[in-house]
C-alpha cells in the first residue's frame, strides 16, 4: 500500500525542464512545455489547413475545414446567444485547447525527458483559464451595458442580494477552476492506480471513459458555463 502511494505521488509531482542560460538554470514546469507542444500542433494544423483557400472549386481539405469551423462556431453561438457573438472565436479556441490537452494522456510519449500529461491536471493552468474567463465575462457585461448599467446589474432582481451577486465574481472562477482541475486530476489518479494494479487489458476500457469521454465532456462544460455566464452578463 505504501509502495502504491509512493508511486502515485511520483506520478503526481510536477516535473521540470531545466534550460541552462549562462550561469543560471531556467526551470520550466511540465504543463508549460506540454502547452507549447499543443500550441505548436494547433498552429501547424491551422497553417496546413488554411493553406491555399479558394472561393470557387474548393478542395476536399477546404470543405472539411469549413465544416469544422462553421459547426464549432454554430455550437458556441447557440450557447452564447445573439448579443455575445463576437466572443465565439475565443471560446472555440478554449474548447479546442481544452479538448486537446485533456486527450493528450492517450499519447504515451516522452519528449525532452518529460512524459506527456494533461496540463489541466495542474491547478495553475485551470486557475489561469478561469481567471481569463471571469475577466471576459465582466468585460462583456461592461461593454454591453456601460459601467453604470454593469454596477446596476448587481442589484437585480432585488437590491438586498447585491452582496451575493458581488461574491459571484469570486465564486464563479473558483468553481470553474476547481471543477476542471478536480475532474482531470481524479481521472488521472484513478487511471494511474488502475495501471499499477491491473496493467493489461482493463485500463484500455476504462481509458475510453476517463480519458476520452470525461475529458471532452469537461472541455465542453467549461466552455458551456463560460458562455452561459457571458450570455447572462450581456442580457
Amino acid at each position: 500500500m505504501n509502495n502504491l502511494a509512493g508511486n502515485l505521488l511520483e506520478e503526481l509531482t510536477v516535473q521540470y525542464l531545466t534550460i541552462p542560460i549562462g550561469g543560471y538554470q531556467l526551470r520550466i514546469s511540465e504543463s508549460v512545455v506540454v502547452t507549447w507542444i499543443i500550441m505548436a500542433v494547433m498552429l501547424g494544423l491551422a497553417i496546413f489547413l488554411t493553406w491555399g483557400l479558394k472561393v470557387d472549386n474548393i478542395s476536399r481539405k477546404q470543405a472539411i475545414v469549413e465544416l469544422i469551423v462553421t459547426k464549432s462556431e454554430a455550437l458556441v453561438e447557440d450557447m452564447i446567444g445573439e448579443h455575445g457573438k463576437q466572443y465565439a472565436p475565443y471560446l472555440v479556441t478554449i474548447l479546442l485547447y481544452l479538448g486537446m490537452s485533456n486527450l493528450i494522456d492517450l499519447f504515451d510519449m516522452k519528449l525532452f525527458g518529460l512524459s506527456l500529461k494533461p496540463p489541466t491536471k495542474d491547478l495553475n493552468v485551470t486557475a489561469a483559464l478561469a481567471f481569463m474567463s471571469i475577466i471576459l465575462i465582466e468585460y462583456a457585461g461592461i461593454h454591453q451595458k456601460g459601467v453604470r448599467g454593469w454596477l446596476k446589474s448587481f442589484a437585480e432582481p432585488v437590491a438586498i442580494i447585491a452582496p451575493i451577486n458581488f461574491l459571484e465574481i469570486f465564486i464563479r472562477p473558483l468553481s470553474l477552476c476547481m471543477r476542471l482541475f478536480g475532474n482531470i486530476l481524479g481521472a488521472f489518479v484513478i487511471m494511474e492506480l488502475l495501471k499499477m494494479v491491473v496493467p493489461v487489458v482493463l485500463p484500455a476500457f476504462f481509458s475510453c471513459y476517463f480519458d476520452i469521454f470525461d475529458g471532452l465532456i469537461q472541455a465542453y462544460i467549461f466552455v458551456f458555463l463560460t458562455s452561459m455566464f457571458i450570455k447572462e452578463a450581456v442580457e
Partner: peptide
C-alpha cells in the same frame, strides 16, 4: 441535463479533492 449534472457533480469533485 448536462449543465445540471456539471453543477451537481461539483460537490463530489470538491470532496474528492479534499480526500486526495
Amino acid at each position: 441535463l448536462l449543465l445540471g449534472c456539471a453543477l451537481a457533480e461539483a460537490t463530489a469533485i470538491y470532496g474528492l479533492l479534499i480526500g486526495i
